[in-house]
Design a protein around this nucleic acid. Structure first.
Lengths: 338, 338
DNA sequence: CTGAAAGCGCTAACAA
DNA sequence: TTGTTAGCGCTTTCAG
């Protein structure tokens, strides 16, 4: 089992100093073409691959960025990651991908690991509105640039890219109101997650603006998954006073609701209208395609990456930059009024 | 802008040697409890975060694994990644995620970057059956453990985890034959990708075993995407002699076909039966749910991670280990014979 | 229980 | 154009 060769081995092989080899390999100025050629040949022959750990240690720069998301297997995050990856890789960065699985403690562990590995920057979709601030503070405390994506954390001074969740929720609620639905219910996500609380806020605001009073039972707390949607729908079916429209916090929840309602003979949209939020591919393929709000996950990622690059290049002022990626209402059959 | 503090700063702060601090921080033996306490307090006060670049350089171990997949935003790969992540992170590894976007050259660049960063191992879903061998050779040449996942590369001696694509394709083809379909067509993926060529091989083998001759026009070359499916369906619609069953290389292609056929008034399964392969969530939600072959992407990932861990722990012999994760035929309405 | 010296593989700064 | 010295932040080895 042969050892990996280092710059030193090449130096010995070529009877040159380590420094000359180092320069030649980085093709810096002031190397005789003949010498360079000899060195390159030797490097190839010895299967030399530079050790970036050493370089990074000296240069205090790793060309590495850490990404922390709740769960890469959750719709939306893979596409967001691709947006990040394309922009950052183009500029020579490589990415650590970490998942927090919605746990603040796990999030902190992952961030610590990134900091220990001296990433040049971190892009974070925070696990919690109320508890992630501490973690972000400790990143900034290490002078490590950080940009938040998808979810904002109040009180944190960091570049942030979100979708227009609030406005999107207003728009979709208004759509239901304009369609003439009377008893609109919102199946809400965890209020400790920015996107979910914004969507609820949008719902509330749109209802208020239309002089619709909201009864407590019109807001149903749930989670973000298909299964959460199923559970909420079962709960709804037990009610005597059923809504005529349901606005779900996201598409997976809406699809869970869809499935249970149809299994129980409820006709969409005739008996009840249904919407999701965030336009995953499935929602278009349902027998009754789902009205939803489209967010461009890839743009979100690309924009976050660009903000981070600007920081890394030292182009931006100290002021944090907040960007919003516009959402778009997509009306489909699930909210068609008879 | 304060500098990050190092072990040296703590040593100075505590009036101790660097060595003592290093030991205390790793809570090694032979440190006076009082001393340790003082050091820990100082570390906290100075916001010390160890520099793993330095540690890794000395120890020649980074607790880091590189993952290379064609495209993380492609159905299946996010779940596979989660399988990898859960197993590896549990054991203290952190992951680089790289995408090759099906380009061998890009794949090579990504692998080189991983090697330079001295990852402890690489898990790779190779971009090409014919061209990825060279890259894998260069990984192994650096004594870096590598395990292939999802796609096998003939002639490469490396641990490999795949799904039973060949057997699955036989099974689904047999299902179509048993249902009594006469003119079965296969929409095939790129033959330079292992999974696609295995599925075609399974199709061919099942037909051969049933004494069905295959005409050239029964195999339609295509890609892996929804759009490829749409294009193939348009081509099919032009034919005078239409098939009564279509086996698509994967679910996205099948859904593309589904959409175009329905838009053109073709009834599934009455006019033509349709199958996919690999069971993405959408396929179940279609108005006519899709018959397909289920693969457990998370298991694939977990198994690959375990093989890599075994190598890292030096538990396995030199013999490469090949594992197959069983697939499962899922019969739904899209292949129901009238 | 604590410390000094050497070195991991590389580069910056200065000399020759 | 090339080489020497020093050092990045840590750990191993050997002394005290």
């Amino acid at each position: 089992m042969k050892k990996r060769s280092s710059i030193k081995d090449i130096a010995r092989d070529c009877e040159l100093s380590v420094m000359t080899v180092s320069r030649a390999l980085r093709n810096a100025y002031g190397i005789h073409p003949k010498t360079r050629e000899k060195i390159l040949e030797s490097a190839k022959r010895l299967d030399y691959i530079p050790n970036r750990l050493a370089t990074n240690l000296v240069l205090k720069k790793t060309d590495t960025v850490g990404i922390v998301v709740p769960d890469i297997a959750r719709s939306f995050f893979p596409v967001l990651f691709r947006g990040l990856e394309m922009v950052l890789n183009e500029r020579g960065y490589h990415l650590f991908l970490c998942c927090s699985y919605d746990q603040v403690q796990k999030e902190e562990e992952q961030v610590m690991a990134l900091l220990e590995r001296r990433v040049d920057g971190i892009i974070l979709a925070p696990a919690s509105t109320s508890h992630s601030k501490k973690i972000i503070d400790s990143i900034q405390n290490q002078n490590c640039p950080v940009v938040l994506v998808d979810r904002l954390v109040p009180g944190v001074e960091a570049d942030t890219v979100t979708a227009t969740d609030f406005e999107g929720a207003i728009e979709i609620t208004n759509h239901l109101i304009q369609q003439g639905f009377q008893n609109i219910v919102h199946i809400a996500g965890s209020q400790d997650i920015w996107t979910a609380s914004e969507r609820l806020r949008g719902f509330t605001e749109a209802m208020r603006a239309a002089n619709r009073e909201i009864q407590p039972e019109q807001i149903i707390p749930a989670g973000f998954t298909f299964e959460d949607g199923e559970a909420a729908a079962r709960e709804l079916l037990k009610r005597k006073n059923r809504p005529d429209a349901i606005f779900c916090v996201n598409d997976p929840v809406a699809i869970g609701v869809y499935k249970i309602l149809r299994e129980n003979g409820v006709v969409i949209p005739d008996d009840v209208a249904l919407t999701g939020f965030s336009a995953i591919a499935e929602s278009e393929l349902l027998e009754v395609p789902l009205t939803t709000v489209q967010q461009n996950a890839q743009d979100l990622g690309a924009e976050a990456a660009k903000l981070l690059l600007a920081r890394l290049d030292g182009l931006t002022s100290d002021q944090p930059i907040i960007r919003q990626i516009p959402t778009q209402l997509v009306v489909r059959a699930s909210t068609r009024k008879k």
